[in-house]
């Protein structure tokens, strides 16, 4: 059904495939979230752009100074809505203290990682549509079923706020078999391993595959690698992302 929205789009097929796969994932049961909750997170990520609280928070010297309720478009619990809106609109000022306090309040690290993955996949597909002039996709179709409870069986500490999947864990080869070296960004949301493949497929289609990141190859794109890196650098500068 939603494939029809790409009719007339003259871009690469791998882009369409990656976006459709991500959208299907966003409606499917996750590790701790149901498909319905993930679909509502997509709605919240969209609602955050017009949220007055998010606007006021971005303009405040410290994000902690603004604590009004968000302009929500779902029935998700308010703490979840706050996390999704922060990830969408003010990610550069997220802190370890905030994430640890969420865990103390019951939103553990794996649940946070799943909220993060769901939000950023939605943002990524939506921004692509906006950029090329396509209509936004409708909210993901919900697949019924319980969450799987999935969580990395063996974890590593790489100096981040959250543990990540260890390459020594039995499930790791299924996700990273083609990577000669694991960068931190390829491991960032791996506490919920099923998110790794969606992330990698999106990155491979939208940018270059993780294994090609250290090279100077443009992977046959219409832009040179220097042009690709200029775009990447400008995006990171706008969001003041150090990484």
């Amino acid at each position: 059904m939603i494939t029809q929205l790409y009719q007339g789009f003259d871009g690469r097929a791998d882009l369409v495939q990656a976006h459709l796969a991500a959208w299907e994932f966003l409606g499917s049961p996750g590790a701790q979230l149901t498909g319905a909750q993930k679909s509502q997170i997509v709605a919240e990520a969209r609602a955050s752009h017009a949220c007055a609280t998010c606007k006021a928070r971005r303009e405040a010297l410290s994000p902690g100074w603004v604590n009004a309720p968000h302009e929500s478009d779902s029935e998700l619990p308010e703490p979840w809505v706050d996390v999704v809106h922060r990830i969408a609109t003010d990610p550069g000022r997220m802190t370890k203290q905030f994430v640890d306090e969420l865990a103390e309040q019951g939103l553990d690290h794996a649940a946070y990682v799943e909220l993060l993955g769901t939000t950023m996949f939605a943002l990524s597909v939506d921004i692509f549509h906006r950029a090329v002039g396509l209509e936004p996709l409708p909210l993901p179709d919900v697949v019924q079923g319980p969450p799987s409870g999935e969580r990395a069986s063996i974890v590593d500490d790489i100096g981040a706020w959250l543990p990540v999947l260890s390459p020594k864990s039995p499930e790791a080869p299924a996700f990273w078999k083609d990577l000669p070296r694991l960068s931190h960004v390829a491991r960032g949301i791996s506490l919920v391993p099923s998110q790794i493949l969606v992330h990698a497929q999106l990155i491979a289609a939208q940018y270059v595959p993780f294994k090609a990141v250290p090279s100077t190859s443009n992977m046959g794109r219409a832009l040179s690698r220097a042009q690709i890196e200029l775009v990447a650098g400008r995006v990171s500068a706008i969001s003041e992302c150090f990484y």
């Binding site: 943002l123 999106l202 939208q206 940018y207 775009v231 990447a232 969001s239 992302c241």
Partner: peptide, 8 residues
């Protein structure tokens, strides 16, 4: 695509 990837 690159804008979308780096947003993520």
């Amino acid at each position: 695509g690159v804008i979308s990837a780096f947003t993520m």
